[in-house]
Amino acid sequence: MRGVSWHKFFTNKMALAGGIVVVLLFIISLLAPWISPYDPGEINLRMVLSPPSSNHLFGTDQLGRDVLSRMIWGSRISLKVGFVATGIAIVIGIILGAVAGYYGKWVDITIMRFVDIMLCFPAFFLILAVIAFLEPSIWNIMIVIGATGWMGITRLIRADFISLKERDFVQAARTIGAGDPRIIFVHILPNAMASVFVAATLGVAGAILTESALSFLGIGVQPPTPSWGNILTAGKDNIDIAWWLSLYPGLAILITVLGYNLLGEGIRDSLDPRLRR
């Protein structure tokens, strides 16, 4: 990545801790079939709502399913939603931001007005409304979170493009006959990727939070597919008798989101000061 001082990044303990959390989560979700002690869907009616024990480290839920196993499988959902939703937001953001910043004039005005309009909607309202009209499947959720979260990235990329397009190396590329798409994607975009990477890392954190809130409200990932948010729904229903159902999945969300936020901020702090805003 151009413009990132890796030395500075690796001496930042908070950022490093965030990075370790993120890597660990990848490993856990990759190894889910081998490391989860039980089948996440295995119902055991003799073990309904049993508290944490040596057999079930995080206890069991209202159907006697092992909470730890469901959380391990739930990490896959979080990662999937986080990455796909952010990926969608980044693709939209890069294209609109690059076009607006590079071409300027009415193209810029039109796109940025559109950004202003989208920013008027409370994102959570828009997501809920769209999901009410469609079906609350995991793919719809990822698309909707992505389609309502690209505005910040568009603004970032646009600002980078406005300042980069006047630089000498762009003029040089133009002189030797490079076309607009080549200048945008090959010459300018790589120089703007560092700030996109920061926004993406923070975006994953936000998408994971949104998915968990949607699933908690029962409009997100639908049972029996385990997600951290929908385990918490069961936690809320059994709030006075089964604290473990509420405590552990929430902690998992907190640690994950914290990890991505620390990583993102760490990378931002190690950006070349000339690129940092």
Partner: peptide, 22 residues
């Protein structure tokens, strides 16, 4: 700031309900 920004507030709401309410 970091914890406040990362915490799922609906979860914190559950915990505070258990603590202050129950």
């Amino acid at each position: 700031v970091f914890v406040g920004f990362s915490i799922p507030t609906f979860w914190l709401a559950l915990l505070l309900m258990i603590l202050f309410g129950v």
